[in-house]
């Protein structure tokens, strides 16, 4: 490298290093250090694993942790199953203008704040809400029913919130599948099901993986939907982090929770990449 280009290189490298160093790497190391200490008395701390011990022995914490993980996986699977036929319809069945309009219709709700979407579900599902009124009017219920604050409602909200992040990668990969390949599958005697299993799904795999990763991440890290739509029993791990940090001011335990969430999400994301033999660069970049 010539000297001028060397200077340019360092000038370009500086913002990247400052950003990643000061806002991502060092803060996370700091968070790890804080989670590894125990408050002995005012202003006196000792290095210990006490926070993690507390997190792993207290049944409520541990149960919430696993519940959040399992529910997020479930939400991801549901989102995939609901989104796949729709994405296929947009990518392969709809043509021309209809295709563009349908794709746009999928995008627009997600330019609207998550808070607004959650608020919409609250209006629909609460005791005095539209669905409850509709059920009474049809005669399926004889008094107002509360549909909020259950796991099922929370699931509806979670799936809704992250739908876009499944539909977009799926449509993109499915669009790149040549129609003639599908025709060839039928010509060779394949049934609809076998064509789906042996041609369409393998081709859509990159889209499925990146969609699932993003949706899983968003569900795991969601705070609004579980808080507003979920019930007393559907405590989410992010709510516990918030409680420790803001309500109880117990930063040590909160940091430990934060780290557990980070580890959980990393393990699942890397696991998914490893299982499908892909890299983060291919999937996100």
């Amino acid at each position: 490298m010539r000297s001028q280009s060397r200077i340019t290189f360092y000038l370009l490298l500086t913002p990247l290093v400052l950003w990643l160093g000061l806002l991502i790497i060092i803060p996370h190391i700091d968070m790890l250090l804080i989670s590894l200490r125990e408050r002995i008395s005012f202003g006196v701390y000792e290095t210990s694993l006490a926070q993690y011990e507390k997190a792993l022995t207290e049944p409520l914490y541990l149960r919430t942790f696993w519940r959040t993980a399992v529910m997020s996986v479930l939400a991801t699977a549901l989102t995939l199953m609901i989104a796949f036929p729709v994405s296929y319809y947009i990518a392969k069945m709809a043509k021309g203008r209809l295709q563009q309009v349908l794709f746009l219709l999928c995008l627009i709700p997600f330019y609207v704040s998550e808070l607004v979407r959650t608020f919409g579900w609250m209006i629909l599902l609460r005791e005095t809400g539209l669905v409850s009124n509709l059920l009474q009017w049809v005669g399926l219920a004889d008094r107002p029913i509360e549909l909020l604050y259950t796991d099922a409602t929370m699931m509806v909200g979670l799936v809704y919130t992250s739908m876009l992040f499944m539909v977009v990668p799926l449509v993109t990969t499915l669009e790149s599948l040549d129609d003639s390949v599908i025709e060839a599958g039928y010509d060779l005697g394949g049934s609809g099901l076998s064509v789906l299993r042996e041609i369409i799904i393998p081709h859509a795999m990159p889209g499925i993986v990146s969609g699932c990763i993003v949706v899983f991440m968003l569900s795991l890290g969601n705070y609004l939907t579980p808080t507003m739509l979920g019930g007393k029993d559907s405590l989410w791990f992010t709510e516990m982090i918030y409680n420790q940090f803001i309500v109880r001011s117990n930063w040590e335990l909160g940091a430990a929770f934060g780290f557990m969430l980070l580890v959980l999400s990393s393990v699942i994301v890397w696991g998914m990449l490893w299982l499908t033999g892909r890299t983060l660069k291919e999937t996100m970049g």
Binding site: L16, L20, L23, I24, I25, I26, P27, H28, D30, M31, I34, I213, V214, M217, L220, G221, Y223, T238, I241, Y242, F245, W251, G254, A255, G258, L261, L262, S265, S266, V269, L280, K281, M284, G285
Partner: peptide, 20 residues
């Protein structure tokens, strides 16, 4: 490393900046 912020839950990003 540049891609990582996309796979860190937003709330964890928030608390790490807060803590630091």
């Amino acid at each position: 490393l540049m891609l990582l912020p996309l796979v860190i839950p937003g709330i964890v990003l928030g608390i790490s900046v807060l803590v630091f």
